[in-house]
C-alpha cells in the first residue's frame, strides 16, 4: 500500500518549483534584453516580458506552493494589481518619450554580437 499524501505533496512542490524556475529564467531573459537592445523603444518590449509571462509564472508557482490559503488570495491580488498597472505605466513611459520627440530607430537593426561588443565600444 502506497501512501499517496507525501507523493502528492512532493509533486506539488515540484510543480511550484518548476513554475518559479521557468519564471525566473524568463525574468533573466527580459532583463538581459533590456541591457542588450539598441534603443529605448525596443527595450520596452524586453521589459514587457518581465512584466507579463515571468510575473505570471512566478506568482503561479508561489500560489501552488502556498496552496489554498489566504496567502494565495493575496498573491492573486498582487497579480491583478500588476496586470492592471503595468500596461498603463508602460504606455505612459512610451507616450512621454514619443511626445518629447524621441525618435525610434526603424528599418532593420542588427545589434553587435555579444563577443564583439567590447571591441566596438573601444572603437567608438
Amino acid at each position: 500500500m502506497i501512501e499517496w499524501g507525501p507523493v502528492l505533496e512532493l509533486l506539488r512542490h515540484g510543480t511550484a518549483g518548476a513554475f518559479m524556475l521557468v519564471g525566473a529564467i524568463f525574468m533573466l531573459i527580459g532583463s538581459s534584453g533590456v541591457l542588450r537592445l539598441p534603443d529605448f523603444y525596443t527595450r520596452i518590449h524586453a521589459a514587457g516580458i518581465t512584466d507579463t509571462l515571468a510575473t505570471v509564472l512566478l506568482l503561479a508557482g508561489m500560489m501552488i506552493e502556498a496552496g489554498f490559503t489566504q496567502t494565495s488570495a493575496k498573491l492573486a491580488l498582487v497579480g491583478i494589481f500588476l496586470f492592471l498597472t503595468s500596461p498603463t505605466a508602460t504606455h505612459a513611459v512610451a507616450n512621454a518619450a514619443h511626445k518629447a520627440g524621441l525618435k525610434p530607430r526603424l528599418g532593420t537593426v542588427e545589434p553587435p554580437h555579444p563577443r564583439d561588443v567590447d571591441i566596438n565600444e573601444k572603437k567608438g
Partner: peptide
C-alpha cells in the same frame, strides 16, 4: 531619461516579486 524611468518601473515590478 525614459530608459531610466523604464528601468525604475521594471525594477519596481521585480521588487514586488
Amino acid at each position: 531619461l525614459y530608459d531610466r524611468v523604464l528601468a525604475v518601473n521594471s525594477f519596481g515590478t521585480k521588487t514586488v516579486l
